[in-house]
Amino acid sequence: MAAIQTNQLVKTFNAGKVSAVNGISLTVEAGELFGIIGPDGAGKTTLFRLLTTLLKPDSGSATIDGLDMVKDYKQIRSRVGYMPGRFSLYPDLTVIENLSFYASVFGTTIQQKYELIKDIYCRLEPFADRKAGKLSGGMKQKLALCCALIHAPSVLFLDEPTTGVDPSSRREFWDMLAKLKTHGITILVSTAYMDEASRCNRLAMMNNGRFIGIGTPQTIVNEFDKTLLAIRGDEMYRLLNDVRNIEGIEECYTFGDVHHIRLQKDTNLKMTDIEQILVHQYHHTNVKMEPCQPTMEDCFMNASKKER
Protein backbone atom coordinates (compact mmCIF):
# COMPACT_ATOMS: atom_id res chain seq x y z
CA MET A 1 0.00 0.00 0.00
CA ALA A 2 1.24 3.48 -0.81
CA ALA A 3 2.11 5.57 2.24
CA ILE A 4 0.98 8.79 0.57
CA GLN A 5 -1.32 9.01 -2.42
CA THR A 6 -2.71 12.30 -3.70
CA ASN A 7 -4.97 12.96 -6.61
CA GLN A 8 -5.16 16.43 -8.22
CA LEU A 9 -4.81 18.35 -4.95
CA VAL A 10 -5.66 22.04 -5.30
CA LYS A 11 -5.38 24.73 -2.65
CA THR A 12 -5.90 28.44 -3.25
CA PHE A 13 -5.75 31.44 -0.93
CA ASN A 14 -7.36 34.88 -0.96
CA ALA A 15 -10.61 33.61 -2.45
CA GLY A 16 -8.97 31.74 -5.28
CA LYS A 17 -6.65 34.54 -6.33
CA VAL A 18 -3.41 32.88 -5.26
CA SER A 19 -3.09 29.22 -6.09
CA ALA A 20 -0.44 27.68 -3.89
CA VAL A 21 -0.92 24.05 -4.85
CA ASN A 22 -2.20 23.54 -8.35
CA GLY A 23 -3.18 19.95 -9.14
CA ILE A 24 -0.60 17.76 -7.43
CA SER A 25 -0.81 13.99 -7.96
CA LEU A 26 1.77 11.97 -6.12
CA THR A 27 2.37 8.45 -4.91
CA VAL A 28 4.97 7.72 -2.24
CA GLU A 29 5.58 4.06 -1.42
CA ALA A 30 5.96 2.89 2.17
CA GLY A 31 9.54 3.16 3.36
CA GLU A 32 10.55 5.61 0.67
CA LEU A 33 12.64 8.74 1.22
CA PHE A 34 10.93 11.17 -1.11
CA GLY A 35 12.19 14.68 -1.73
CA ILE A 36 10.38 17.75 -2.98
CA ILE A 37 12.71 20.43 -4.26
CA GLY A 38 11.79 23.89 -5.37
CA PRO A 39 12.39 27.55 -4.59
CA ASP A 40 10.61 29.59 -1.93
CA GLY A 41 7.01 30.16 -2.87
CA ALA A 42 6.81 27.02 -4.98
CA GLY A 43 4.03 25.72 -2.73
CA LYS A 44 6.02 23.16 -0.76
CA THR A 45 4.85 24.30 2.65
CA THR A 46 1.20 24.43 1.59
CA LEU A 47 1.49 20.89 0.23
CA PHE A 48 2.93 19.73 3.55
CA ARG A 49 0.19 21.45 5.51
CA LEU A 50 -2.42 19.77 3.32
CA LEU A 51 -0.88 16.35 3.82
CA THR A 52 -0.58 16.83 7.60
CA THR A 53 -4.31 17.80 7.67
CA LEU A 54 -3.61 21.35 8.83
CA LEU A 55 -5.37 22.64 5.72
CA LYS A 56 -8.33 21.32 3.76
CA PRO A 57 -7.93 21.10 -0.01
CA ASP A 58 -10.18 23.10 -2.33
CA SER A 59 -10.47 20.05 -4.53
CA GLY A 60 -8.77 16.73 -5.07
CA SER A 61 -8.14 14.02 -2.51
CA ALA A 62 -5.34 12.30 -0.67
CA THR A 63 -4.77 9.33 1.59
CA ILE A 64 -2.04 8.97 4.18
CA ASP A 65 -1.44 5.37 5.24
CA GLY A 66 -4.71 4.54 3.48
CA LEU A 67 -6.66 7.08 5.59
CA ASP A 68 -8.62 9.87 3.95
CA MET A 69 -7.11 13.28 4.64
CA VAL A 70 -10.47 14.97 5.25
CA LYS A 71 -12.61 12.26 6.81
CA ASP A 72 -10.01 10.47 8.94
CA TYR A 73 -7.84 13.43 9.84
CA LYS A 74 -7.87 12.59 13.54
CA GLN A 75 -6.40 9.13 12.94
CA ILE A 76 -3.85 10.54 10.54
CA ARG A 77 -2.65 12.93 13.20
CA SER A 78 -1.65 10.15 15.54
CA ARG A 79 0.32 8.42 12.80
CA VAL A 80 2.34 11.20 11.24
CA GLY A 81 5.31 13.13 12.52
CA TYR A 82 5.69 16.74 11.38
CA MET A 83 8.58 19.12 11.57
CA PRO A 84 7.55 22.54 10.23
CA GLY A 85 9.95 24.93 8.54
CA ARG A 86 10.63 26.89 11.67
CA PHE A 87 11.96 24.47 14.26
CA SER A 88 8.99 24.31 16.54
CA LEU A 89 10.62 24.12 19.92
CA TYR A 90 10.00 26.00 23.13
CA PRO A 91 13.08 28.19 23.48
CA ASP A 92 12.61 28.69 27.22
CA LEU A 93 12.40 24.97 27.96
CA THR A 94 15.44 22.71 28.13
CA VAL A 95 16.25 19.97 25.63
CA ILE A 96 14.88 17.25 27.88
CA GLU A 97 11.78 19.26 28.79
CA ASN A 98 10.95 19.84 25.14
CA LEU A 99 11.35 16.19 24.32
CA SER A 100 9.36 14.84 27.25
CA PHE A 101 6.61 17.36 26.62
CA TYR A 102 6.20 16.22 23.02
CA ALA A 103 6.36 12.60 24.21
CA SER A 104 3.46 13.13 26.59
CA VAL A 105 1.45 15.03 23.99
CA PHE A 106 1.50 11.80 22.01
CA GLY A 107 0.82 9.73 25.11
CA THR A 108 4.22 8.08 25.32
CA THR A 109 7.51 8.52 27.16
CA ILE A 110 11.12 8.99 26.10
CA GLN A 111 12.05 5.62 27.62
CA GLN A 112 9.47 3.74 25.56
CA LYS A 113 10.69 5.09 22.24
CA TYR A 114 14.34 5.56 23.09
CA GLU A 115 15.48 2.93 20.58
CA LEU A 116 14.26 4.97 17.63
CA ILE A 117 15.78 8.30 18.60
CA LYS A 118 18.88 6.95 20.31
CA ASP A 119 21.28 7.63 17.42
CA ILE A 120 20.19 11.25 17.15
CA TYR A 121 19.58 11.92 20.79
CA CYS A 122 22.95 10.66 22.02
CA ARG A 123 24.53 13.71 20.41
CA LEU A 124 22.15 16.00 22.26
CA GLU A 125 22.47 14.27 25.59
CA PRO A 126 25.45 16.33 26.85
CA PHE A 127 23.21 19.41 26.45
CA ALA A 128 20.09 17.88 28.00
CA ASP A 129 19.71 20.73 30.49
CA ARG A 130 20.43 23.54 28.08
CA LYS A 131 17.54 25.73 26.96
CA ALA A 132 16.49 25.00 23.39
CA GLY A 133 16.82 28.68 22.50
CA LYS A 134 20.54 28.54 23.32
CA LEU A 135 21.32 25.66 20.94
CA SER A 136 23.06 26.07 17.59
CA GLY A 137 21.06 25.65 14.40
CA GLY A 138 22.28 22.11 13.90
CA MET A 139 21.40 21.12 17.47
CA LYS A 140 17.95 22.67 17.25
CA GLN A 141 17.36 20.72 14.08
CA LYS A 142 18.34 17.44 15.73
CA LEU A 143 16.12 18.16 18.71
CA ALA A 144 13.20 19.05 16.46
CA LEU A 145 13.70 15.79 14.60
CA CYS A 146 13.71 13.85 17.87
CA CYS A 147 10.48 15.59 18.87
CA ALA A 148 8.86 14.67 15.55
CA LEU A 149 9.98 11.06 15.93
CA ILE A 150 9.11 10.52 19.56
CA HIS A 151 5.81 8.76 18.85
CA ALA A 152 7.29 6.45 16.19
CA PRO A 153 5.21 7.82 13.32
CA SER A 154 4.78 5.76 10.19
CA VAL A 155 5.06 8.80 7.92
CA LEU A 156 7.41 11.68 8.67
CA PHE A 157 6.94 15.12 7.08
CA LEU A 158 9.99 17.37 7.17
CA ASP A 159 9.44 20.84 5.75
CA GLU A 160 12.78 22.41 4.79
CA PRO A 161 14.61 20.86 7.72
CA THR A 162 18.03 22.05 6.53
CA THR A 163 17.32 25.72 5.87
CA GLY A 164 19.67 28.00 7.79
CA VAL A 165 21.86 25.17 9.06
CA ASP A 166 25.59 24.99 8.35
CA PRO A 167 26.86 22.52 5.72
CA SER A 168 28.32 19.86 8.00
CA SER A 169 25.12 19.71 10.05
CA ARG A 170 23.16 19.43 6.83
CA ARG A 171 25.17 16.44 5.75
CA GLU A 172 24.83 14.82 9.15
CA PHE A 173 21.10 15.35 8.97
CA TRP A 174 20.78 13.47 5.70
CA ASP A 175 22.84 10.62 7.18
CA MET A 176 20.33 10.43 10.02
CA LEU A 177 17.43 10.29 7.57
CA ALA A 178 19.10 7.44 5.71
CA LYS A 179 19.31 5.55 9.00
CA LEU A 180 15.68 6.22 9.85
CA LYS A 181 14.67 4.63 6.58
CA THR A 182 16.00 1.34 7.87
CA HIS A 183 13.28 1.52 10.55
CA GLY A 184 10.72 1.46 7.74
CA ILE A 185 9.55 5.04 8.22
CA THR A 186 8.29 6.80 5.10
CA ILE A 187 9.85 10.24 4.86
CA LEU A 188 8.66 13.16 2.78
CA VAL A 189 11.19 15.98 2.89
CA SER A 190 11.26 19.33 1.15
CA THR A 191 14.33 21.41 0.48
CA ALA A 192 15.46 24.43 -1.47
CA TYR A 193 18.99 23.00 -1.79
CA MET A 194 19.29 21.17 -5.05
CA ASP A 195 22.49 19.41 -4.00
CA GLU A 196 20.55 17.53 -1.35
CA ALA A 197 18.29 15.93 -3.93
CA SER A 198 20.68 13.10 -4.69
CA ARG A 199 20.14 11.77 -1.16
CA CYS A 200 16.50 10.91 -1.91
CA ASN A 201 15.14 7.67 -3.40
CA ARG A 202 12.87 9.67 -5.61
CA LEU A 203 12.07 13.31 -5.87
CA ALA A 204 9.74 15.81 -7.44
CA MET A 205 10.76 19.24 -8.68
CA MET A 206 8.14 21.80 -7.74
CA ASN A 207 7.57 25.27 -9.11
CA ASN A 208 4.52 27.57 -9.01
CA GLY A 209 2.38 24.95 -7.29
CA ARG A 210 3.04 22.21 -9.86
CA PHE A 211 5.43 19.32 -10.25
CA ILE A 212 7.71 19.99 -13.21
CA GLY A 213 9.58 16.71 -13.03
CA ILE A 214 9.48 13.55 -10.99
CA GLY A 215 11.73 10.49 -10.79
CA THR A 216 14.87 9.12 -9.19
CA PRO A 217 17.82 11.52 -9.10
CA GLN A 218 19.41 9.45 -11.85
CA THR A 219 16.43 9.46 -14.22
CA ILE A 220 15.97 13.19 -13.79
CA VAL A 221 19.58 13.86 -14.73
CA ASN A 222 19.34 11.39 -17.63
CA GLU A 223 16.34 13.20 -19.00
CA PHE A 224 18.42 16.34 -19.50
CA ASP A 225 18.43 16.41 -23.29
CA LYS A 226 20.50 19.45 -24.20
CA THR A 227 24.18 20.33 -24.40
CA LEU A 228 25.61 21.89 -21.26
CA LEU A 229 28.92 23.77 -21.26
CA ALA A 230 31.03 25.32 -18.53
CA ILE A 231 32.90 28.47 -19.44
CA ARG A 232 35.39 30.73 -17.73
CA GLY A 233 37.43 33.72 -18.73
CA ASP A 234 39.22 36.75 -17.31
CA GLU A 235 36.21 39.02 -17.12
CA MET A 236 33.42 36.89 -15.76
CA TYR A 237 30.71 39.50 -15.55
CA ARG A 238 31.18 40.80 -19.10
CA LEU A 239 31.39 37.21 -20.29
CA LEU A 240 27.99 36.42 -18.81
CA ASN A 241 26.25 39.22 -20.69
CA ASP A 242 28.07 38.62 -23.95
CA VAL A 243 27.31 34.90 -24.02
CA ARG A 244 23.64 35.70 -23.54
CA ASN A 245 23.68 37.69 -26.77
CA ILE A 246 24.83 34.76 -28.86
CA GLU A 247 22.20 33.19 -31.11
CA GLY A 248 21.49 29.54 -30.32
CA ILE A 249 22.12 29.77 -26.58
CA GLU A 250 19.06 29.08 -24.47
CA GLU A 251 20.39 30.22 -21.12
CA CYS A 252 23.63 31.25 -19.49
CA TYR A 253 23.93 31.57 -15.73
CA THR A 254 26.56 31.82 -13.04
CA PHE A 255 27.60 28.57 -11.46
CA GLY A 256 30.24 29.12 -8.83
CA ASP A 257 33.56 30.04 -10.43
CA VAL A 258 32.26 29.20 -13.95
CA HIS A 259 29.18 30.04 -16.00
CA HIS A 260 26.95 27.31 -17.35
CA ILE A 261 25.70 27.54 -20.94
CA ARG A 262 22.70 25.54 -22.08
CA LEU A 263 22.35 25.33 -25.86
CA GLN A 264 19.03 25.30 -27.64
CA LYS A 265 17.98 21.81 -28.62
CA ASP A 266 18.09 22.22 -32.39
CA THR A 267 21.04 24.58 -32.72
CA ASN A 268 24.13 23.91 -34.80
CA LEU A 269 26.24 26.09 -32.54
CA LYS A 270 29.57 24.44 -31.64
CA MET A 271 31.93 25.16 -28.78
CA THR A 272 34.48 26.52 -31.24
CA ASP A 273 31.88 28.92 -32.69
CA ILE A 274 31.16 30.35 -29.29
CA GLU A 275 34.84 30.77 -28.55
CA GLN A 276 35.37 32.50 -31.90
CA ILE A 277 32.59 34.99 -31.25
CA LEU A 278 33.75 35.73 -27.71
CA VAL A 279 37.39 36.21 -28.61
CA HIS A 280 37.00 38.11 -31.86
CA GLN A 281 33.75 39.98 -31.53
CA TYR A 282 33.87 40.71 -27.78
CA HIS A 283 37.65 40.59 -27.19
CA HIS A 284 37.61 38.20 -24.26
CA THR A 285 40.86 36.69 -23.08
CA ASN A 286 41.68 33.30 -21.59
CA VAL A 287 38.30 31.85 -22.53
CA LYS A 288 38.14 28.18 -21.54
CA MET A 289 35.17 25.98 -22.25
CA GLU A 290 34.30 22.34 -21.70
CA PRO A 291 31.19 20.16 -21.79
CA CYS A 292 29.91 19.32 -18.35
CA GLN A 293 27.52 16.94 -16.61
CA PRO A 294 24.21 18.50 -15.56
CA THR A 295 23.58 18.72 -11.83
CA MET A 296 20.15 18.71 -10.24
CA GLU A 297 20.24 22.49 -10.30
CA ASP A 298 20.80 22.53 -14.07
CA CYS A 299 17.90 20.11 -14.47
CA PHE A 300 15.68 22.31 -12.34
CA MET A 301 16.54 25.40 -14.34
CA ASN A 302 15.90 23.55 -17.55
CA ALA A 303 12.56 22.19 -16.33
CA SER A 304 11.33 25.54 -15.04
CA LYS A 305 12.34 27.20 -18.34
CA LYS A 306 10.34 24.59 -20.24
CA GLU A 307 7.33 25.19 -18.02
CA ARG A 308 7.34 28.87 -18.82
Binding site: G38, P39, D40, T163, G164, A192, Y193, Y253, M301
Partner: peptide, 8 residues
Protein backbone atom coordinates in the same frame (compact mmCIF):
# COMPACT_ATOMS: atom_id res chain seq x y z
CA UNK B 1 17.25 31.22 3.89
CA UNK B 2 16.98 32.17 0.22
CA UNK B 3 16.37 29.64 -2.52
CA UNK B 4 19.01 28.84 -5.16
CA UNK B 5 17.28 30.63 -8.03
CA UNK B 6 17.18 33.87 -6.09
CA UNK B 7 20.72 33.35 -4.88
CA UNK B 8 21.95 32.99 -8.44
Amino acid sequence: GVDPTTRR
